[in-house]
Amino acid sequence: MTRILTALCLSMLLAVPAVAGTVTAVTIDGLTCAAPVLDAIAQEAGLTTALVSTSREKARAALCSGQADMALLPADVSVAKKIRNLGPVFTAEYGVIGRAGNYFRSLRELGGKIVAVVRGEEKDERISKRKGIIPRPLAGYEQCLKLLLAGKVDAVAGDICGMAHAVKKMRIPKQALGTPFILSSTPVCLFVSDGLGENIRPIDETLYLLKKKETLRKILAQYSL
């Protein structure tokens, strides 16, 4: 039911024609820090955003079809020629975290462990039964962390900024958790459609200024473990 409602909301929002000063932005489910970053870029450029979070493929398709104006997506995503890459904005990290005292330093140490993951989100293929690890799909990071602290799973795997957001929301003391073991790091870039026309230049200039003023770094610092 949740997937149906998400798809319906996505199609309704992307079907609304863009108006002056408003841009439709898309990002990937689980990439929690992308929303405030996109908002900061748009606001500084004098624009407002209609933000949609969806799967990687749907986000890419929306951008390439002209249904979306800009997106924060992994640098390796394949896009149409009419889409411009304005460069890297931040690095998304996928990792594993356990309770305090459980410091995972290799995949071998996860062998035989029950690892909570968020159902439907992209995950590292190494977190699988084929590798001797037992993934347990759950509804979201909050549920994953609750079971971790209750000792019902051994670790949580996922996007670090998504986990950090849940930790902050749940007011979990950082000392209750171990040090994250990073499995992969991916540059996330700002992609814009040629359909933005004259708005592309102020967005590009804004991205440069926000990096220079370290505004983006301060936003991203709120999503770290």
Rank of each mutant, 00 (worst) to 15 (best):
M1I: 03
M1N: 10
T2H: 00
L5F: 05
L5N: 05
T6A: 14
A7K: 06
A15K: 15
V19L: 13
T24K: 11
I28T: 11
D29P: 00
L31T: 01
T32F: 07
A34W: 07
A35N: 14
P36M: 15
V37A: 05
V37E: 13
A40E: 14
I41V: 15
Q43R: 14
Q43N: 12
A45I: 03
G46P: 13
A50D: 05
A50G: 06
L51R: 01
T54F: 13
K58R: 15
R60I: 07
A61H: 06
A61W: 13
A62F: 00
C64K: 01
A68L: 08
D69T: 08
L72V: 03
L72W: 09
P74A: 03
A75N: 09
D76H: 08
D76A: 13
D76G: 08
A80M: 09
N85R: 11
G87R: 09
V89M: 09
F90H: 07
F90M: 10
E93V: 01
Y94C: 06
Y94M: 10
G95S: 09
G95R: 02
G95K: 06
V96D: 11
I97V: 14
G98P: 06
A100G: 06
R105D: 11
R105G: 15
L107S: 09
E109W: 02
L110C: 02
V118N: 00
R119L: 06
G120F: 04
E125A: 13
R130D: 05
I133E: 11
A139L: 03
Y141K: 05
C144M: 05
A150T: 03
G151M: 08
G151H: 14
K152F: 08
V153L: 03
A157N: 13
A157R: 02
D159M: 05
I160N: 02
G162E: 02
M163R: 07
K168L: 10
M170G: 10
M170W: 00
R171N: 12
R171M: 11
I172N: 04
K174L: 15
T179Y: 05
L183W: 07
S185Y: 10
T186C: 14
V188P: 02
S193P: 09
L196E: 03
E198R: 13
E198Q: 07
N199M: 04
I203R: 12
E205C: 11
L207W: 09
L207H: 14
L209H: 14
K211F: 10
T215V: 05
T215M: 06
L216I: 12
I219G: 02
Q222D: 07
